[in-house]
């Protein structure tokens, strides 16, 4: 009658693991058979979208704290990577990891006061932080009379390798985030995050150190957002504050996660794939009106499936079981 309590050694559902492994192997093999640059680029972009949405999901999806400033960490990662590679001659992979570390160094002091705020106040505070970082990077050189961030001129990175390289890099990052989400969801921390979402004061009363748990989730999210920002900077080879600190990055992360389903393992995967795959052909066909069409589609999906595609399907499954 009583299932395995959460947190105890869990058994992996064999079918799901086999399916995930099959998908992963297929994705590894794709570039060997597909030499179309566009297809690989599109796949790489989907992987990046899934990874970004997963970052947002780990923090906001599970706790319900709407982070409206992840673009700050994306930009910090992009700039850290660019500066380390261009100025310091640091190798690419080390640069992106260091970019993640820099982001965590920002996330902890930013999180400590803001994660005590609830509801809309947290969203506003994080949004302000992202805008402030963008302005700081933009105006730094002019105000201090130095030549460091190069303001709106931006920074040019060394010419990057092929699309195939980025395809694999994003495939690895996406997979790592998927596995982390899977582990967190089933861990004591995952249950604590959900408890914070549902009744934060009650979570505190049963002994959850809510601030500490929120900071962990926020730092993990910031680290990977920055790593992705670093990879993207190398892919684009040219960054400016207005590009990599753009609020559009934040909005994309939020929408992908909402479409797929907040606080679900597969939500970011479905949401990011769906949004990227409908955007591309629509953009090619209706270059001027495609955003209107996407807007309508997003509204329709959210109205029909208020908990996101995955979240609503899970709900239907539970309902049909009659429990």
């Amino acid at each position: 009658m009583i299932q395995t309590p959460p947190g105890r050694a869990f058994t992996l559902p064999r079918k799901a693991v086999l399916l995930a492994a099959a998908v992963f192997v297929t994705l590894i093999l794709v570039p060997a058979f597909c030499h179309q640059g566009y297809a690989l680029r599109l796949m790489g972009m989907i992987f990046m979208g899934i990874a970004l949405a997963s970052c947002w999901n780990i923090m906001s999806g599970y706790t319900g704290y709407i982070d409206f400033g992840p673009a700050a960490y994306f930009g910090i990662g992009a700039y850290a990577t660019a500066l380390l590679m261009v100025r310091g001659g640091v190798p690419f992979f080390l640069s992106i990891v260091l970019g993640g570390v820099v982001a965590v160094a920002f996330a902890v002091p930013v999180g400590l006061p803001t994660l005590r705020l609830r509801g809309a106040y947290f969203a506003i505070a994080t949004f302000a932080f992202a805008e402030a970082t963008r302005q700081a990077v933009l105006e730094w050189d002019r105000v201090l009379g130095v030549n460091f961030f190069q303001g709106s001129h931006g920074i040019t990175l060394p010419i990057g390798p092929t699309h195939q390289f980025f395809y694999y890099t994003f495939l690895v990052i996406m997979t790592v985030l998927f596995v982390i989400t899977y582990l967190v969801e089933r861990s004591r921390m995952g249950y604590a995050l959900k408890a914070i979402h549902e009744a934060e004061d009650a979570a505190e009363l049963i002994g959850v150190n809510t601030l500490k748990i929120k900071i962990y989730a926020y730092a993990i999210s910031a680290f990977f957002t920055a790593v992705i920002g670093g990879v993207d900077a190398y892919w684009l080879t040219y960054i400016t504050p207005n590009d990599v600190f753009s609020v559009h990055i934040t909005i994309k992360m939020v929408i992908m996660c909402l479409l797929g389903g907040m606080g679900t393992l597969l939500g970011p995967v479905v949401g990011a794939s769906f949004l990227t795959l409908i955007s591309e052909p629509l953009w090619a066909r209706f270059p001027y009106d495609y955003l209107i069409i996407i807007g309508v589609i997003i509204v329709l999906v959210i109205v029909a499936m208020p908990k996101g595609i995955v979240g609503t399907l899970l709900e239907w499954k539970v309902d049909s079981r009659g429990t």
């Binding site: 009583i2 309590p5 004591r188 249950y191 959900k194 408890a195 549902e198 009744a199 049963i206 002994g207």
Partner: peptide, 19 residues
């Protein structure tokens, strides 16, 4: 009461044994 609304009864109880 302040239970966790989206969690099952069992998960609510098991959350009590968090420490």
């Amino acid at each position: 009461a302040r239970v966790f609304p989206e969690m099952s009864v069992l998960d609510n109880l098991l959350m009590g044994a968090y420490v």
